[in-house]
């Protein structure tokens, strides 16, 4: 599978990555090469194989419903790019 310039633009948008015009071609070549590598997977028939999401064959542990956290807003927001009145600020969101 080789990716066109338009494919790369679409993927970059979905992943919210700004890619400059002059880099798109390089990315489409790189990504196409990676996909060619990845497609070696098709050499093996896996129709009867169960997918493996995780190396451990165990179940989720459940936590007791206890409040353990205290307010650390000041610490957390000391490293935030932009805050006001305890809120994180972003360019206006339109619904």
């Amino acid at each position: 599978m080789s990716l066109s310039k338009a494919d790369v633009e679409k993927i970059a948008h979905l992943a919210r990555l700004a890619i400059s015009e002059q880099d798109i071609e390089l990315y489409s070549r790189n990504l196409s090469n990676i996909l060619a590598l990845v497609e070696q997977m098709n050499k093996v028939d896996t129709s009867a194989v169960l997918p493996m999401a995780h190396p451990l064959d165990t179940a989720q542990r459940l936590r007791d419903d206890v409040v353990t956290e205290t307010n650390q807003r000041e610490t957390f927001q000391a490293i935030a790019p932009q805050v006001d009145c305890g809120l994180y600020l972003v360019p206006q969101v339109l619904e």
Binding site: V8, I11, A15, Y27, L31, I34, L35, V38, P51, M52
Partner: peptide
């Protein structure tokens, strides 16, 4: 970008699910 593509609609089975199956093998 590769990961976004592998999970995107229409490609999930051919890439991500396939890889999970190979992972078991």
């Amino acid at each position: 970008m590769i990961g976004t593509y592998a999970l995107s609609s229409g490609y999930y089975d051919a890439y991500y699910l396939k890889a999970q199956k190979l992972r078991r093998l």
